[in-house]
Computed example of a mutant assay.
Amino acid sequence: MGKVRCLVTGGGGFIGSHLAQKLAELGHEVMVLDINIPDSLRNRASGGITYYQGDVTRLSPDFRLACDWCFHLAALADIIPSIKEPVKYHQVNVTGTINILDHCVNLGVKKLVYASSTSIYGIPKQYPTLESAPADPRYPYALTKWVAEEAVMHWGRVYHLPVVALRITTAYGPGMRARGAYGSVMKVFLPQKANNMPYTVTGDLSQSRDFIFVDDVVSAFIKAAESDVSGEVFNVGSGQPTTLGRLIELLGDENGIVYLPKRPGEPDMTWADISKAKRML
């Protein structure tokens, strides 16, 4: 495939920055739109990436970043902050998504790939969990990701915008932002390990998560953009859960463990069925 003009919203974040870098390495022209562009990204970026600082909730009428592919990753994440600030999460994750969809329709974008989340399944009744499982969001973050995903599919049907949504499990890898004790497990454990601190575990060690390396997530985004598929939702994960006990065993537990109360609405297991993505992407 020849050179493609790409827009990555949220390209200053964890997954978005890896995606922008990979697209540039493949020879594509890349534009990053983010409310916060760390200097470290600007300084280490390869050629082919142009950064624009902006807020997806407040796109001006003259905002015109024409592109062939739009990868929409700009969002607020994490459970506890969403419970404390549900309106803010709705503004960024839902209104921001609709603004980007409108932008894509107006400029004739050839494909939009949306970063959704397997958190929309809530506490699934079946494992591994298929895309056909009912949505049952248990906290505002998950709700906003689901509503935004529905908007993406709606814009695809009504405005004939080619769209794909990727429901991502728990991504990890270089560049993860450290979170508080109630953040995503990898974002919590790795900084604690690096700083010789005890691990904070919410619940117990029997819980398991479907971890996926960030490079594999990036690959799924690019395959979705390159494909002729539209109007589809795909799980993106490793397809294999790992218990927190096993994860700590691999990392080493020389600094001990501190147990915290379990977060509301959080499943004991995440395990995505990825057979559809393997078959169609």
Rank of each mutant, 00 (worst) to 15 (best):
D55T: 06
S119H: 12
N106D: 13
Y114Q: 08
N93H: 06
T97S: 10
V214Q: 04
K125Q: 14
I79N: 14
D39K: 13
V30R: 06
P140T: 01
L161D: 00
L260M: 15
V236L: 02
D210E: 08
V163P: 01
L23A: 08
V163W: 04
L33M: 06
P241V: 05
G48R: 05
V185T: 11
L59W: 03
G237A: 11
L26Y: 06
S206F: 00
I168C: 00
P128V: 05
T129S: 10
E226M: 10
L250N: 15
T170C: 14
M280Y: 13
G239C: 04
G180A: 09
E131D: 12
C104P: 11
D55E: 11
V185P: 00
P267L: 08
P191A: 08
S40Y: 10
T170R: 10
N93D: 08
Y89R: 07
D215F: 00
Q126L: 09
N93V: 03
V109E: 07
Y139G: 04
V87F: 11
E150M: 12
L166W: 00
V113W: 01
D215G: 08
I15Q: 03
L107F: 09
P38S: 08
L19C: 05
I15E: 03
Y182Q: 14
W69G: 07
S184L: 13
R64T: 09
I98L: 12
M197W: 07
H90I: 07
Y114W: 10
N93I: 02
E29L: 10
P38L: 04
G122I: 00
G13A: 07
M31A: 10
K278R: 15
S119A: 15
V30S: 02
A133K: 04
E150N: 14
T270H: 04
G231F: 01
A75W: 01
V109R: 11
V113F: 01
G256K: 07
K223G: 04
Q192M: 13
D55C: 09
S206N: 12
F189P: 00
I98H: 08
Y51A: 01
A115H: 02
V8F: 02
P140A: 07
P264E: 12
G237Y: 00
V94S: 09
P134K: 13
Y182L: 12
T129A: 10
